[in-house]
Design a protein around this nucleic acid. Structure first.
Lengths: 213, 213
DNA sequence: CAGATAATGTACGAACTAGTGAGTTATTTG
DNA sequence: CAAATAACTCACTAGTTCGTACATTATCTG
């Protein structure tokens, strides 16, 4: 019946399939809006397996969140701060953040959803603790270098700068629908992409240089 | 003829009470997460009245959305662009936007929730069409004045500038929980308020002046 | 005041939804 | 190969949730 090497049962594959579907479904409908039965139907397995592998809806949701964060982890690792001058370094970081947000829509949706729930699930997950530290460290070093070189005159805190960059990139994707409805422009449409990508870079650089205010 | 306030039955009051409670509940739990029975229990009337006045859960949600938007409508009307130079005008607008977002948390939550639902309800509401036009008009005039006076050198689009300002103000409130969990700082805490309020003003001004990049 | 109408309360039901009990089959292990 | 275990299926349920039928009472109108 079964072909050797071609397993009919595969725990890893089943688990991964459930998680993939769950991530998409939670991102699409929110935690309360997502249906366990619907998630099950979209897999090649059954609802019972969700409970077998994850225990329940909430644990599945947390697993989906962790997977989403894992996928976007370490943007900052690709910025080679030591070989770039501070201005180019911060601009590059901003634009890489832009690219990452652009490329991970489900992640954005899940974070927005998690905020509706006041981050109660994130707090339950140790896997997601201290995930922010690396970016802050990178920004701190860029800021220090910028002040040392005299390129940056504005006194700024790393967390604040990170928020400035993130807010722009996050909002563009997360609020695309209401923003589009109110202003008649889809900020995530291809024709706006490059302009806004440049803009976020200019924004941080201008802010940190301090426009002689 | 009856004296208002005398009546044991008051359609307007009942309707308004339901709407107030609904707005808070939808903001707290999302559309799918909110419970019609729960909303009813938090009013002094019964669930039957929700259906009597609003027709159903979805219509109630739309009414709550419209109320939320109505409350924050016309921030821009308080900016007296003609008596302020362009730099102060755009800074003032940014900081008023900051104040408004700070003061209307339920509105922010509802907008975030509505984006999870891809703005499908906003589109159903004529009351919310073209609500963005006034701000854009104001920003356009400020930008024009700023370029005429030579204060602004960056070529910028009104919608883009509005997005820049909104994203900062919106993100700070909307993402406070996940941001707090990841970076250990509540950006909405009183001790960060003034600094960030100043920051959003400096950010737009610096961007528009163009830091001699 | 009497009849009409608007506003409200009670009780109930149909459909949905998360979760499970219990048995079955494939795969691994000794 | 036999026993053990991991992976899986199916049918079911307890509780919830939106919505409504129907009765009732206050207020208005002529």
């Amino acid at each position: 019946m079964s072909i050797p090497g071609d397993r009919q049962r595969d725990a890893d594959r089943t688990r991964a399939e459930i998680l993939d579907v769950a991530m998409a479904e939670f991102a699409r409908s929110g935690y309360a809006g997502a249906r366990v039965d619907e998630i099950a139907d979209l897999t090649s397995t059954t609802k019972r397996m969700i409970y077998y592998y994850f225990g329940g809806k909430e644990q599945l949701y947390i697993a989906a969140l962790e997977k989403a964060y894992a996928e976007v982890r370490a943007v900052e690792k690709t910025v080679d701060v030591d070989h770039l001058d501070p201005v180019e370094a911060i601009r590059t970081l901003a634009q890489l953040t832009f690219d990452h947000h652009d490329a991970h829509r489900d992640f954005i949706a899940l974070v927005a959803i998690e905020n509706v729930h006041r981050a109660e699930h994130i707090r339950k997950s140790e896997a997601l603790a201290n995930l922010g530290a690396p970016v802050l460290d990178l920004i701190s070093r860029i800021l220090a270098a910028g002040h040392a070189s005299g390129d940056f005159t504005t006194e700024a805190d790393a967390i604040d700068v990170h928020m400035m960059i993130s807010s722009f990139c996050f909002f563009r994707v997360a609020n695309q629908h209401t923003f589009g409805a109110l202003f008649g422009r889809d900020m995530t449409a291809p024709e706006h992409r490059e302009r806004l990508r440049t803009m976020v870079g200019e924004m941080v650089v201008a802010y940190l240089k301090g426009a002689g205010v």
